[in-house]
Design a binder for these strands. Structure first.
Lengths: 199, 199
DNA sequence: TGTACATCAGTGAACGCGCGTTCACTGATGTAC
DNA sequence: TGTACATCAGTGAACGCGCGTTCACTGATGTAC
C-alpha cells in the first residue's frame, strides 16, 4: 500500500515525533530508521526524502525537548506571579514531562546522541544552562520581592532545583515506576522550600 | 603474536576493567568485543573463553561500580566520625569518582545496559538505593548527635545529596569539562550545609 | 625423570544478522501553454 | 478545458559495513603413571 504523498515540512515533523515516540516506548537502542518509518507509515527509504541521514533526525530531537522545557516555563509564569509558587509548579510540570517522555532522560544521557556527531553535546548543554538561568531568574525575583532568603546563591538554588528533579526521575525510571514519585518529590520539595523560604 | 595463557579468573577481571576503560575513553556506543579484546591484548574470540556473551561482560560492570561507591563510603567513614564532615567528604569523593570514571554516568543512564537484559535495571536500582540508605544513615547519626536539624527528613536529604552530585557531574560531562566543577560543588555544598546544619 | 594424555586458553577464518544508505523506478500533484 | 511536462514523495531491491558469535585447530601447562 502506498503512503499518501505529504509535504516535506509536515513529514519532517512527523518523523521527529515518531523518533521521540519510539524512544519513549522502546528506548534509543531500538531506534532505527525502519522503526521510525513504520511509525510514520512509510517505507524506510522514504525517510531519506526528508532527512539526509539518521544523524540529521537525531539532531532535531533536542530542539523538540527544548520546546517542551520552554513551554513549561512559559505556562508556569503565566499561571502565577509568586516566585515560590512558580518554582513549585515548574517542578511538578518538569516531573510530569519526564514521566510522559522517558525519552528525555534517555536521550539526554545517551551516547547515541553524543557519540555520533560533534556539537550536539554543546547544544544540549546550552539548552540546560538556559533552563537553569531561567530558574535562577525566578529565584532572584523572589529575593527582590522578599519571599526568598537573600543569602542563598540563585545559581546554586537552580542547580538544586535540577537536583530535586533529576535523581527522582532517574530512580523512578530505574524502578520501573515502583519508586513513589509523588511522595518523594513532595518530601524533597518541602526540604527545598524550607531551605530557600524567608521566615 | 600469541597472548600469554592466563587464568580465567584473572582474565575475567581484566576484561571487565578493559570494558570500563573503553567506556571511559570512547563511550558505550564504541564498546565492542573487539575493542575490549584489544584492551586486554587478546583476539576477539578469546573473550568467549571467559564470558558467554557480551551481555555477560556488561552484567559485571555495575558490580564494579558498586565496589567504587562502597569503597568511598568506607574510606570516608574511616576518615572522620563527624556526620557533616562525612557527607562533605563523601560528596568530594563521589564527584572525584565520576570525574575519573565518566563510564559511570554513561553506563548508568545507558540503554545498552537496560535494553539488553531484564533485571539489570533492578540491579542498578538496588545499588543506588543502598547508597542512598547509607547516606540517610549518616544523616540520622548527625541528628542523634545534634549536629543536623532534627526536623529534616533523612530520606529527602539523601536524595538531595544525590541531587547535589548528579546534575553537576552531568553538566561537567556535557560541557566537556568547561563547567567549573569545583566552584559549583562548593556553592552547592554551602547551600546544602546551610539547609541541614543545626544552628 | 621421562612419557602420554587431559585440560584449557588463544587463534583466525567464517557466518549471519541488523541496519543505514543508495538507486532506479513509480506515480501523484501542480504548472505552463 | 485539455495536454505535456516538471517536480517530488513513495517504493522495494540491493549493497556494504560493523559486529557478535561459532568452530575447528593450535599449543602451552599441569598431572598421572
Amino acid at each position: 500500500m502506498r503512503a499518501e504523498k505529504t509535504d516535506t515540512h509536515i513529514r519532517q515533523e512527523q518523523i521527529v515525533r515518531a523518533a521521540l515516540d519510539q524512544i519513549n516506548h522502546y528506548g534509543i537502542k531500538k531506534l532505527s530508521i525502519a522503526s521510525v518509518a513504520q511509525g510514520v507509515g512509510v517505507v524506510p527509504s522514504a525517510i531519506y526524502r526528508h532527512f539526509k541521514s539518521k544523524d540529521d533526525v537525531l539532531d532535531a530531537v533536542p530542539d523538540m525537548i527544548e520546546g517542551k522545557l520552554q513551554a513549561n516555563i512559559r505556562l508556569t509564569c503565566e499561571e502565577t506571579p509568586n516566585p515560590i509558587e512558580r518554582l513549585k509548579r515548574l517542578m511538578v510540570r518538569h516531573v510530569q514531562t519526564i514521566r510522559e517522555n522517558q525519552a528525555i532522560p534517555r536521550i539526554i544521557f545517551s551516547e547515541d546522541l553524543y557519540g555520533g556527531r560533534q556539537g550536539r553535546k554543546t547544544k544540549v548543554y546550552r539548552i540546560v544552562m538556559r533552563y537553569l538561568d531561567q530558574v535562577a531568574e525566578i529565584v532572584r525575583q523572589g529575593q527582590k520581592e522578599g519571599q526568598i532568603r537573600p543569602d542563598v546563591d540563585p545559581e546554586a538554588v537552580s542547580l538544586f532545583f535540577l537536583g530535586m528533579v533529576q535523581p527522582t526521575g532517574f530512580l523512578w525510571f530505574l524502578s520501573d515506576g515502583k519508586f513513589d514519585l509523588k511522595k518523594h518529590t513532595g518530601k524533597v520539595w518541602q526540604l527545598f522550600a524550607k531551605m530557600i523560604r524567608k521566615e
